[in-house]
Design a binder for these strands. Structure first.
Length: 605
RNA sequence: GGGCCGGUAGCUCAGCUGGUCAGAGCAGGGGACUCAUAAUCCCUGGGUCGCGGGUUCGAGCCCCGCCCGGCCUACCA
């Protein structure tokens, strides 16, 4: 871990059809930020990118319902989502969006590269079209009677009653879920990505990841290889990236499939970042260097896109599938080092559902509780390796017992004792064996916690960090410095010095998880400058907005390189003046559990 | 229907490639202390590890079947 690594932190792109809820950010947001902050503290070069995913049918449908353009709807939620992610303290180097001129260009370049290498072909299929709009009606938007069991509410892709997979053409009395009209089934030509051409090389690649990736992700991905089918990557829809092929780009109603363009975002955002940073070639250090690493963070429903389709697209662009070929004009691009997938968060025993209003939006949450409280809960009790349940009772308990009582109180009791009795960080006198033992244990925690985070075992990392907090509390209780005030003031000063060093170390260990409160502790102990930099919103312009949308849009970025934070025990400086501290975290009244449950019941109806 | 993942103490969850693996935190009970947001520290738990078979000297951890929950199965992380 001594040499500096280049680490691309690729974070799943939230879909801009509404505000995001705490389940979303527990899947991709908070874990990726813990990872990125830790890597930066370790001296590695991190590039953390993401943005809002704004194309596709769901946004178009929602926009139609509201009587606004898709672009305008996307503008709205892009901004809301960006604001929420900043409020959570997620340290993106660039959080952008898929509706930028740069993104369009990079997506088209990937398509062209794949096309030139022979991995994209056209095929005529029978698809459902909405007669009134001429747009593709996705299978799931077609309803009708199941030809097998006669169930009336069957969807075009599957019957929820008998579980059989269906073809929308076979539905009896088909109708559009959007407006009830009868869909037309017409021949339509589409571009297909030749996934079977990558079966072998994907298999080799995936098998090389054994032992590194979380086993469930690997197993799932390998299994998919048994039956790879060509996949349509275009749609009859006007809301998307135009297809860069003569005769197609002119057609207003043919666009690239939203998933094809969304995954390219990891690359296009890196390129946009480089352009904005003033060195347009800088992205290559993360995408093309032999030793560069890339970690992709997402929820489990996205594994197929990140462990199968996106790698296949990259391989095809590089000319590495069964049909060979040569790298496109960008040059050869790196495949993911690791695909880190989270499981799902449920909500008081139920599945999160925006439509059924079983949901807690990030924004609503942060209006009442702190970002660090949410971050703490997500890492400590979130769905890292299996589904977990969010309950308000558990949230309040974690907040009060662990954040406030254990960590917040440790900061408070140690600093206030030193402030009152000495007014500054005291010198240490001669250290006892016990003093040395706790200090050594605290130093040793850096490798342990860091090792966990580096392997994406965030829950274990946080547990170890909190163990040092418990150790420090125990040390103070055992040494009882308050009792030494009269009997042995010199020893009291030493104990307080040791205690403050432990607090300072714990603050550092907790920084990736709780950046905002760690910054406060840093300041309380007399630190100057910025400890761990926080993200900010910046308004930027793009040529593509046009008259329809806003021509400026918010991006998330930050000056993380200016942070003082380093992943090691940093000796505190005796003599630094100390003020009596103010509480780090707000304690929550147990009544908030009932209040929140009532709020939920009321919303869900 | 197919694939994958889970079902461990009252609650929320840890348990890597089989042999101190039957655990942690909280809740409950007892004690110490008073610096601190009545916080902290110590002691205290015996749960058929979803159910039924099987492999093995030995299985939460491997195999088979079943039950329950989740996700994916061409557009909600």
């Amino acid at each position: 871990m001594s040499s500096k690594r280049h680490i691309l932190t690729a974070v799943a792109w939230p879909y801009a059809n509404g505000p995001r809820h705490i389940g979303h950010v527990s899947g991709f947001g908070v874990p990726s930020d813990v990872f990125a902050r830790f890597q930066r503290m370790s001296g590695n070069h991190v590039l953390m990118v993401s943005g809002t995913d704004e194309h596709g049918t769901p946004i178009q449908v929602l926009a139609d319902q509201e009587g606004v353009t898709a672009r305008r709807l996307a503008d709205r939620y892009n901004r809301i989502i960006a604001e929420d992610l900043v409020a959570l303290g997620l340290s993106y180097d660039l959080f952008t969006r898929t509706t930028t001129a740069n993104h369009y260009a990079v997506v088209q370049e990937l398509f062209t590269g794949l096309y030139n290498n022979g991995y994209i072909f056209t095929k005529t299929t029978k698809g459902a079209i909405s007669p009134s709009t001429g747009r593709t009606l996705p299978d799931r938007y077609v309803e009708g009677t199941c030809p097998i069991c006669g169930y009336d509410g069957a969807r075009g892709d599957q019957c929820d009653n008998c579980g059989n997979q269906l073809d929308p053409v076979d539905l009896i009395d088909p109708r559009s879920k959007i407006n009830g009209e009868t869909p037309e089934f017409v021949d339509t030509e589409h571009f297909m990505l030749d996934l079977p051409a990558f079966t072998e090389i994907l298999g080799t690649w995936l098998k090389s990841k054994a032992g590194q990736w979380r086993p469930n992700v690997l197993k799932f991905s390998l299994n998919l290889l048994d039956d790879l089918q060509p996949r349509a990557i275009s749609r009859d829809l006007d809301w998307g990236v135009p297809i860069p092929i003569e005769g197609w780009s002119e057609q207003a109603n043919k666009r690239l499939y939203v998933w094809f363009d969304a995954v390219v975002g990891y690359l296009s955002a890196a390129i946009e970042w480089a352009q904005r940073s003033g060195d347009p070639e800088a992205w290559r250090r993360w995408w093309q260097a032999e030793d560069a690493e890339s970690y992709y963070f997402m929820g489990k429903d996205n594994i197929v896109f990140h462990a199968e389709i996106w790698p296949a697209m990259l391989l095809g662009y590089n000319g590495k599938g069964d049909r060979g070929g040569r790298p496109g004009t960008l040059g050869e691009l790196n495949l993911p080092t690791e695909v880190v997938s989270s499981e799902f968060l449920t909500m008081e025993g139920r599945k999160f559902s925006s439509s059924r209003r079983v949901v807690i939006y990030v924004r609503d949450f942060l209006q009442r509780y702190s970002a660090d409280a949410l971050r703490y809960y997500i890492i400590a009790a979130g769905p890292e390796t299996q589904d977990t349940d969010f309950t308000w009772a558990e949230f309040v308990r974690r907040n009060n017992d662990e954040l406030v009582a254990a960590w917040g109180n440790l900061v408070n009791r140690s600093i206030s004792m030193a402030a009152k009795n000495i007014g500054a960080i005291p010198e240490a006198g001669e250290l006892t064996d016990e003093d040395r033992r706790v200090l050594d244990a605290s130093k040793a925690a850096f490798d342990v916690v860091g090792g966990h985070i580096d392997r994406s075992r965030f829950k274990a990392g946080l547990q170890e960090a909190m163990r040092t907090v418990a150790e420090a509390n125990k040390y103070i209780s055992d040494q009882a410095p308050w009792a030494l005030k009269k009997t042995d003031p010199e020893r009291m000063r030493t104990v307080l010095h040791v205690a403050l060093q432990l607090v300072d170390d714990a603050k550092t260990l907790l920084t990736p998880f709780l950046p905002a409160s760690s910054n406060k502790v840093y300041a309380m102990l007399g630190g100057t400058g910025v400890w761990s930099a926080m993200p900010r919103l910046e308004e930027v312009t793009d040529s593509i907005g046009g008259e329809e949308g806003t021509s400026t849009y918010p991006v998330i970025t930050g000056d993380y390189a200016d942070s003082e934070a380093r992943w090691e025990s940093i000796p505190i400086r005796p003599g630094t003046p100390l003020e009596p501290p103010t509480p780090l975290f707000a304690k929550l009244d147990p009544s908030v559990v009932d209040e929140e449950l009532a709020r939920l019941e009321e919303a869900a109806g």
